[in-house]
């Protein structure tokens, strides 16, 4: 409104209701209905896709005998060095070790008095390893001695597990052609999903706590210490053998717990993300299981990877603490 329109008078102030600012888009209860609408759209797309795939390819598929999902975990020698050949598992070991070292050293060199979010997370992880896992199972002197071992175990397993959920072009059995270039197809693999890796780590733990126990009590004392306090007489002999067996079983339990969890996690993600559909030849099945695959992927990354590392490191600390304890 200009002066001419108002007859030379100054423009009148806008009415009260006109000056009230328009409600902000986030002020109304729209987000809730927006999420609901998005979920309904996703469900609609999911069902529509399912119906379309059944309509196009049919319900019953043709079994695929050629595809073998277990071959995703087969180790092909890339660089032949005899039994020390470089393969996919070795590559994943290197990647996990490199990521562990680079991350931790990078953050360690940039420790500040006022931490940022990443530093705070690493500090929380460090306190978890040091205070909750190591120091809670042994005395201060022993914790200082064994923390590097237990901390490295935790981080190494954690990074190995997490790297395993990043799709990398490591499947040399099935290559894809990109502008004439044959590159390995992307796959999920983890070094810890191979029996050898958890086994050697478990063996290292076994040797470590046995040596520590013998150092603390002497060979005879350590063996005697395997018999629980209060067991005497004829019962001591079978109990002793049971305890020796139990100690050896620790190697298996540590190994299989980690190996089986990670392998099973990868296999189930693989099946849900399409392997099942490929084996059974049903296109709709792949579409049907995909959401479950995504949920399982998130579950494995968010919980299983860290939990298995935590369990392995915690049991290691407990075994080490138990090996030198007076009443073992």
């Amino acid at each position: 409104m200009n002066a001419t329109e108002t007859g030379g008078l100054p423009p009148r102030p806008a009415p009260e209701e006109a000056r009230i600012p328009a409600p902000h888009p986030t002020d109304d209860p729209a987000p809730k209905s927006s999420v609901k609408r998005k979920l309904l759209i996703a469900l609609g797309v999911y069902l529509a896709g399912l119906i379309a795939l059944i309509a196009i390819y049919g319900f019953k598929g043709h079994r695929n005998e050629l595809f073998k999902p277990q071959n995703e975990f087969k180790l092909e020698s890339w660089v032949d060095l005899g039994i020390f050949s470089i393969n996919k598992a070795v590559l994943y070991l290197f990647i996990a070790a490199a990521l562990t070292c680079v991350t931790m050293i990078y953050i360690a060199r940039r420790m500040q008095q006022r931490p940022n979010k990443v530093q705070a997370a690493v500090e929380a992880l460090f306190r978890l390893m040091h205070d909750n896992i190591t120091a809670s199972a042994m005395d201060e002197r022993m914790a200082a001695k064994w923390f590097p071992f237990i901390g490295t175990l935790f981080l190494f397993i954690l990074f190995s597990n997490l790297v395993g959920y990043i799709p990398l072009p490591t499947n040399t059995e099935n290559e894809i052609n990109v502008f004439g270039l044959q590159i390995p197809s992307f796959s999920l693999y983890a070094a810890t999903a191979n029996l050898s890796v958890p086994l050697v780590l478990a063996l290292t733990v076994f040797v470590s706590y046995t040596v520590e126990g013998i150092r603390a009590k002497g060979p005879i004392g350590y063996l005697k210490g395997l018999i629980p306090g209060g067991v005497q007489g004829g019962m001591a002999v079978p109990i002793f053998f049971l305890e020796v067996l139990s100690n050896l079983m620790r190697i298996l339990s540590l190994t299989i717990r980690l190996f089986a969890n990670i392998l099973a996690g990868h296999l189930i993600i693989l099946f849900m993300a399409g392997a099942l559909a490929v084996i059974l030849g049903s296109a709709w099945l792949g579409w049907f299981t995909l959401p479950f695959g995504i949920i399982l992927f998130a579950f494995e990354v968010g919980l299983v990877a860290a939990l298995q590392a935590f369990i392995f490191a915690t049991l290691t600390a407990i075994y080490l603490g138990g090996a030198v304890a007076k009443d073992h």
Binding site: A89, L93, F94, C101, M104, F126
Partner: peptide
């Protein structure tokens, strides 16, 4: 056996690096 040896080597190297360069600083 080969992978086990590789694991041992890589783990050992990681432990040495972390115990020298990361853990003490943190």
């Amino acid at each position: 056996v080969g992978l086990m040896v590789w694991t041992l080597l890589v783990f050992g190297l990681t432990m040495v690096l972390l115990s020298k360069l990361a853990f003490p600083r943190i």
